[in-house]
Nucleic acid binder design. Structure first.
Lengths: 338, 338
DNA sequence: CTGTTAGCGCTTTCAA
DNA sequence: TTGAAAGCGCTAACAG
């Protein structure tokens, strides 16, 4: 004797247990099975237990595709990234995926490091019905922004202020953090401060540069030398620092807009500083692994990275759940220089 | 006058253009629209052009959920990771996502760094109907392996040999690479070689340790001192190296099973080596950013990481497309010490 | 608290 | 080369 579901199962040929199978075995309706899995307490606790146990025995696993299609929620967030050079991003992945998974969401990685994939990712992200977007990339493609707008999917920018006024963001106070560096250099007798940044278009770069330049101006009455590496990677940072060191009057203090650049700068500077010349001071930004390496005598503005990333992820999920796309801006303070 | 689809659209209320909408506007059937988007050449080229153009104008984007549900393919691969400390993993993300996106696949990040998420991820991965799994984690949960087996979803292990004989893997020849290190130390007059590894259960650790120990034995007639940090992270590596340096006869050559550990070891060792004592030789494994830092006078076994990761991703996708779960094992050679 | 009934948007036989 | 129809597995009203 074959039950209805067994007959169906044999027709489906791929060995997937469905909610209907569970329903049959547990002697309840499909709906009850569904409800037992959706956390709402709409079902008798005893019934639920039974359903869950039958499901477990059968190896049932809800099919996300069906769930998404029927329920219009994917529990997926798109994570837009365009820099895979900076070790800081490892922590980004770590904390985003951890925080998301804790809240029953998952992150899908969207590599937007090339022009063409940037455009392709517009489609992809939305094809996967992501419920929202977490932007860690330095730049948010217009087209994507518009599409999200249209479907009112929330976007949260993490790590920097959003250029567009309409998006939420969680960042640290780059401007103030950079000013701290200026103060620090001033207190420590630096006379020729310099700034090395990565991508000129990145908000983070702009903010850190502006904060630094402005405060230096106030303190010194002149402006620091500035160079943009173009990309926040080791080689470009190294080259930029070399260039600066070849000036007739090289800087005696470097503020680099990331720890990665700071490390690169230190590598560039080191061979020059013999015994006779005092090594220039190098200050980075962040608290990734790099800032902790003993071999680098790095000063670095510390920022609450984990807190920031978790807050951003959480905020995005809140906005998804709440259906609100209201702008929220959270700026965490950058503590001190370590 | 409203077309059928317009009536439907208004009922659906969320502003999503569907294939039916496109079909109506293009004056073809739903089927034809579907076919125009699935690369098969089952449709008149002229018709197809028209469909595609209408679709573009309407801003149509196929709904993955529906596509997956109906077609039983998600174009999603699960990427299992359990270490977010080693900068090497950034390259993993970079190359996996890049290679996958090039082949119209996407990676979903499964953080299996904690016991409970490891178990939860079993479900999740399969719930999302991933078409296959790329395992970068040091350990593949049994339960997951079984479930994949059952649904015959391919698994490819990257970076290490698979413990279970049935899975494909792409890795570099850790054993031979480690032997190179032994040779190198021997040539350079190291007398008391030591090994520092990360996770004792990780195949990578085992292979590198075995290769090193064996060759040292052959060359020296005795075995190196070995320590396992337990985890492949900076702090544990540092502690392990410190411990070794506190031995009455500390090693004069450290082989660390990753660049991260090597950097940590160098930091641990440096303060001890005054002017009078020759600093011990430190050799790492990999070619991440860390191996290139000037401040660390690191030797490192170079391995074709990008090639390996891309090959693994590509192999997985091939297996998905081919429907074969045949075991393939690709071992790339580890070149030289740099 | 539980079941019935419609779909969600797409792919896929099977016919035309 | 194209279309009609039957689901894929689930959620969400709406009743009971």
């Amino acid at each position: 004797m074959r039950t209805v579901s067994e007959a169906k199962a044999s027709r489906r040929d791929h060995g997937n247990v469905t909610a209907q199978d569970v329903a049959d075995r547990a002697g309840v309706s499909l709906t009850t099975v569904s409800r037992s899995f959706s956390d709402a307490g709409l079902v008798n606790e005893a019934t639920r237990e039974r359903v869950l146990s039958v499901a477990g025995r059968l190896g049932y696993r809800p099919n996300m595709a069906a769930r998404v299609l029927a329920g219009r929620r994917s529990n997926l967030i798109g994570l837009l990234v365009n820099n895979f050079d900076d070790p800081e991003h490892l922590d980004l992945f770590r904390f985003v995926s951890s925080e998301a998974q804790q809240r029953n969401y998952h992150a899908i990685l969207l590599n937007v490091s090339h022009e063409r994939s940037e455009i392709a990712s517009v489609d992809t992200a939305l094809q996967f019905q992501v419920d929202g977007l977490l932007v860690a990339a330095s730049h948010l493609p217009d087209q994507l922004a518009q599409s999200c707008e249209a479907q009112n999917k929330p976007i949260v920018v993490v790590g920097r202020r959003s250029l567009r006024p309409e998006y939420s963001s969680v960042h640290c106070d780059n401007h103030a953090g950079a000013a701290l560096v200026a103060d620090y250099m001033h207190e420590n007798g630096v006379m020729r401060p310099a700034f090395i940044g990565g991508n000129a278009d990145a908000t983070v770069t702009k903010e850190r540069m502006a904060g630094f330049v402005q405060r230096i101006e106030e303190l010194y009455g002149y402006q620091p030398v500035t160079r943009l590496a173009g990309v926040n990677d080791y080689d470009r940072g190294h080259a930029a620092a070399m260039e600066l060191m070849n000036l007739p009057k090289p800087p005696d203090g470097f503020f680099c807009s990331s720890d990665l650049l700071a490390v690169a700068a230190q590598d560039a500077v080191k061979p020059r500083g013999g015994q006779e010349i005092q090594d220039p001071m190098i200050v980075g930004f962040g608290q990734s692994l790099l800032a902790r390496l003993n071999a680098y005598d790095l000063h670095s503005v510390s920022m609450p990275f984990e807190k920031m990333v978790r807050a951003a992820t959480s905020l995005l999920i809140d906005q998804i759940k709440g259906g609100s796309t209201d702008k929220t801006e959270i700026a965490l303070p950058c503590d001190r220089i370590v």
